[in-house]
């Protein structure tokens, strides 16, 4: 298929996934802010979403204070922020518009309707009280898009590149989310069994739709190490790093026949770490270090896919 077409499909999927993840983070942070926290400042609560989005400098320049109104506006509505929900959905739609030929008409209509509805919803502005409902809506539209894609799209190369976009983005987001929260909580140390921590951890799980999964799998109180295990190594947890690479690796094995050997190598290496790794060893190495390393590798994989397939050179 045309490299440009593959590029648009890949990025469309990434942006939709990113919008969904931003909505998840924002939603959970907002819910957390409704639980009274002794001794926790508004800034500590609202900084992690910005850390996860990786735009601290831009945020501090444009907004200054970490508070609910600022962070919500920045992450949901700010068109200057390329990772805001509005920006992501706009970019997804622009990408879709350029390659509507390459997808099923139902997919195009879903992305287009998503955009039209978004502009309608935002017309009167977004109240703080509506943020939860707004985030739910973004998530449900992302689910809808994935479902429509799964149910209607031809299993051609376009489908493969679209899936690559979804899982590269999701792996990145899950890793950042875990890293930001874990780092902060470990730094706070203290009594890990206190009620605050229970809410912190359960909200982290909820943000990746894993709260019920955790209970099912471990039948135990919420322990940070097990949360990490669930989101890193469990292959049956659809937003875990391992699950993402279970999806990525076979796709790359199919498309990396003539080109993209480096993609295959990185994916294989990363997949092996997740497949054969043990949580104890990861903790020994340091979870933060492990996650930073993972984020870097995942980024390199994204760059290699870009170079090998999406910006294919003429000669």
């Amino acid at each position: 298929m045309l490299s440009r077409t593959a590029d648009h499909l890949y990025w469309m999927a990434r942006y939709i996934e990113r919008a969904e993840n931003m909505a998840r983070v924002l939603d959970v942070t907002y819910r957390m802010s409704l639980v009274s926290h002794a001794g926790e400042s508004e800034a500590t609560l609202w900084q992690p979403p910005v850390l996860i989005a990786d735009d601290v400098a831009a945020f501090e320049r444009d907004y200054g204070d970490y508070n609910a109104a600022n962070v919500m506006h920045y992450m949901a509505l700010d068109t200057r922020n390329p990772s805001s929900i509005v920006s992501c959905l706009g970019s997804a739609r622009e990408n879709a518009r350029s390659v509507r030929v390459a997808m099923s008409s139902e997919m195009w209509e879903t992305v287009n309707a998503l955009w039209l509805e978004l502009t309608q919803r935002l017309q009167p502005g977004l109240n703080e009280a509506d943020i939860g409902e707004f985030c739910d809506w973004v998530k449900s539209r992302s689910h809808l898009f994935r479902g429509v894609t799964y149910g209607t799209m031809l299993r051609d190369d376009g489908y493969k590149f679209l899936r690559l976009g979804t899982f590269i983005e999701r792996a990145d987001n899950t890793a950042r989310l875990l890293d930001a929260k874990y780092h902060l909580l470990m730094a706070a140390a203290g009594d890990l069994n206190g009620p605050v921590d229970y809410y912190e951890w359960s909200s982290l799980l909820r943000s990746v739709s894993s709260f019920e999964a955790y209970q099912k799998v471990f039948r135990d109180t919420i322990l940070p190490s097990k949360v990490a295990e669930l989101l890193v190594l469990r292959d049956d947890m659809p937003r875990s790093l391992h699950a993402c690479f279970d999806e990525l690796t076979p796709i790359l094995e199919q498309i990396c026949t003539q080109r993209g050997r480096e993609c295959l190598r990185i994916a294989g290496e990363t997949h092996a770490r997740l497949h054969f790794g043990r949580m104890d060893d990861i903790f020994k190495e340091g979870l933060h270090e492990f996650l930073q390393d993972f984020i870097a590798l995942n980024n390199r994989l994204g760059r290699e896919i870009q170079i090998s397939f999406l910006n294919a050179p003429a000669h």
Binding site: M1, L2, R4, T5, V99, V101, F161, Q258, A314
Partner: peptide, 22 residues
């Protein structure tokens, strides 16, 4: 295929499009 100018190039008196397979 719906192509734009940037998707095509000329080589050896022929026109080619850039695809993921070359």
């Amino acid at each position: 295929e719906l192509v734009e100018g940037q998707d095509l190039f000329v080589r050896d008196d022929a026109v080619y499009m850039r695809t993921t397979e070359g």
